[in-house]
Write a protein that binds this DNA or RNA. Sequence first.
DNA 1: CGTAACTTTGAAGCGGCTCAACGGATGTGG
DNA 2: CCACATCCGTTGAGCCGCTTCAAAGTTACG
Lengths: 218, 218
Amino acid sequence: MLEHIEPAGGSVPFRLTNTQAPLRQERWVAPQMTLVPPVQWRDAAVRIGRGCLIVSHELPDGRRQILDVLGQGRVLFCSMLTHGTAKARSLTFTNVERLDEHCDRDAIEEARHLAMKRAYEHALLLGRKKSTEKVATALLDLADQFARNTGTQMRPSFTLYLMRNELADWLGLTLETVSRCLSDFKRKGLIAFDRTDRMTIREKTALRAIADGLAPST
Amino acid sequence: MLEHIEPAGGSVPFRLTNTQAPLRQERWVAPQMTLVPPVQWRDAAVRIGRGCLIVSHELPDGRRQILDVLGQGRVLFCSMLTHGTAKARSLTFTNVERLDEHCDRDAIEEARHLAMKRAYEHALLLGRKKSTEKVATALLDLADQFARNTGTQMRPSFTLYLMRNELADWLGLTLETVSRCLSDFKRKGLIAFDRTDRMTIREKTALRAIADGLAPST
DNA sequence: CGTAACTTTGAAGCGGCTCAACGGATGTGG
DNA sequence: CCACATCCGTTGAGCCGCTTCAAAGTTACG
């Protein structure tokens, strides 16, 4: 989906496969790329085929807020990028496909609604949830998006594309607080992970209760 | 815009003028009403003619997050209310007019973009700004929306429809913290108010710098 | 190995929250 | 008219959850 591709992290390995299919307008994006829509995609909606994108926004002094994490099937609205309201970045090899304003009208409409709904849920999280509630919410959200075909329904397992500091910037916390919450959940058997980037939800309903603020804070 | 109108605060005076103009679909809403769109407005976009609405969302235990504050000209998307993603409430006598999906297509598109952009800015505020930065941002936003014709450009004056606890729920703070910030700004001459619901911005650029995190925290 | 990047863990500090008291404004009834 | 209640805002004191700072542990990769 890129006209210009800017390596965002200085040291991250950089690779790009820019496949332009004749009928479907589709492109591949390498990890750690900042997405810059080509001019003709200025107001387009693009669907993630596979991979993972984060959408973020920053204060002048560099404090960052990650606004959303997009997995397979989610839709990114390029107007947000072109108007300077946000930046999008790939966290792994990611495939995006341009939706057609007319053919995919319903899908676009639905995606717009979902984006707004998620923004509202996220505001509730940022403004009113405790750190443990935030982390629990994030894990369940990521499981929904990225555990499509791995693990069971009640014990989903997924690749965590975000690093601790990215989780922190998503949740309005510090990376240390995120790490402590995750270790805590692990100790309690609510989740499991050996590698830091591979998570398994072990007690989904318990996590759900925590995420919704219904669990005693012990 | 209401089919059923539910008095939300128990003690607030209740009055309603339900004007249904023949051509323009337009209605009046009394203060402190929870807005419930009539069935035929299920997915409509409605523009605020005058008045003030808040859009909010809650956790099961009652913690509330105010998601947006809408003044004259702003557009509310009813689908957010009908899907249970949010509630809307009037803070004063408020006039709303249904936009036409076809005639007002461009206006709706623009409003959608604005809503999303504001949600993003709000997330940045909630997740990454300090209390003083939050309050400064809120004051400037409200000045932009509600000081249309009062005060000067650099010294806007406006009616503050939100109470301290509503400001707090908007900014992810407590009402005490909001009160302390406002008193602090007043003491420093950045703002002025005698009645608690009538604000004047006195040092717009200084407030702007604070809002953007560019001011020393002294 | 050795370095770099990321994570974990600990200890200390602080910003915003909680709890509490007071003050001003408005309304109501005697 | 005053006594009293209610609601909202302000202010203070103490505390706690998260951040900050620091150091050690882990993983990946040359």
